[in-house]
Amino acid sequence: MSLLCLEASARLRSFTGAAHELHLTQGAVSRQIQALEQRLDVKLFIRRREALALTDAGRYYLDEIAPLLQRLDRATANVMAFKGRGGALALSVGASVGAYWLIPRLPDFTREHGEITLNLGTRVGPVDFSASPIDASLEFSDGQRPGLRCDFVLPLVLSPYAAPSWTGLHGRTLDADTPRAALIQHGTLPGVWDEWFIQDGIPGGAGRDGPRYEIMSMALNAAVAGMGVVLLPGYMAEDHVAAGRLRRLSRRQLRYSKGYYLVYPEEAAGMKPLQIFRSWLLGQSEHGPGIQQTVMRAA
């Protein structure tokens, strides 16, 4: 209760306002804060007549516990609403794998598990679970996240694609004579064209002249517009190939050193919605169920 009093008092800048929201007396809220300050041996609030203000220690402490309070509030709401049979799962997903691989498969999950609500968001880079109400993340990484569980879900296997308008001018063969300025770069895949050409015995550095796009979906759209050749996974390119907007320029594939992992804190592993989603997700992988799990712990 003292933590709830802290959060409400800080947000409303008033013990009276917090008391009204929490259905307590103003004195009860004040005593809860005083007891918490005594236990921590720090002052959490500067008590002013016009409004309360957090001390530096109070602001730090509230920033640390806010995600835990949000998770607690969501867990309480889920239990009340679903009686332990389901609930909501807050999931962060990489933009490209989310839009082109995960979301087209979600209708199956929804039909099988209508008791679970998936709330999806996206962000660039790894999730900081200590500062976010996110439960789990499907993210592009090497699976080395100290202190977190990382389940391998999907490899990133790439092939070269270009629009018919581009191949009409430059041919459908990708080799040492391909214009280097036409090799579209991914901001998230540094050096990927070098890896591709090194496999053909062409020295590194051969693929660094083309335009650079921050995310894979932008690189895809640039290729569809005829701006060059792009390395893409099949799940992003296949619909465009079927519609005649892209052509695959090689049967060869490149498996990138990183892949997609389901990442979540140790304490979230017991969440029923996460357990159900994890089992379903690993079943969607090209490798099927039974993926080896890597648990990385902080030293």
Rank of each mutant, 00 (worst) to 15 (best):
R248H: 10
G143F: 10
E267H: 10
N119W: 13
S257H: 13
E37K: 15
L102K: 11
Q253D: 06
A162R: 10
L54P: 05
T294I: 12
L52G: 01
G288L: 06
A299Q: 01
L91G: 04
I116Q: 00
V97Y: 12
Y235N: 03
F109A: 12
E37I: 02
Y261Q: 09
D239C: 08
L154C: 08
A19G: 00
G207Y: 10
M227Q: 15
A81E: 08
G121S: 06
V295F: 03
A225W: 05
G244C: 08
K258A: 12
E195K: 09
D135F: 07
G259V: 05
T25D: 02
Q293R: 12
S279E: 06
I198R: 13
Q32M: 15
L232G: 11
E195G: 00
P273L: 08
G259D: 04
A28M: 14
I291Y: 04
V79W: 15
V29E: 02
V229L: 06
L138A: 09
L274Q: 08
A237T: 00
A243Q: 06
A219E: 00
Y161L: 03
Q185E: 03
R180G: 09
N221H: 12
G187S: 07
V192I: 07
M236I: 06
D63N: 15
G58V: 01
P146Y: 14
K272M: 11
A35G: 02
A28P: 03
N78S: 06
C5L: 03
M218Y: 11
H186L: 06
L174N: 01
A223P: 00
R47N: 05
C5F: 06
F197H: 01
R105M: 06
E112V: 00
M218F: 13
G207F: 11
R71L: 11
E286Y: 13
L220A: 02
A35Q: 05
R278G: 04
L3Q: 14
R278M: 06
L246G: 01
L138C: 10
M80S: 09
L3P: 09
T76K: 11
R212I: 02
W166N: 05
G234R: 12
A219D: 00
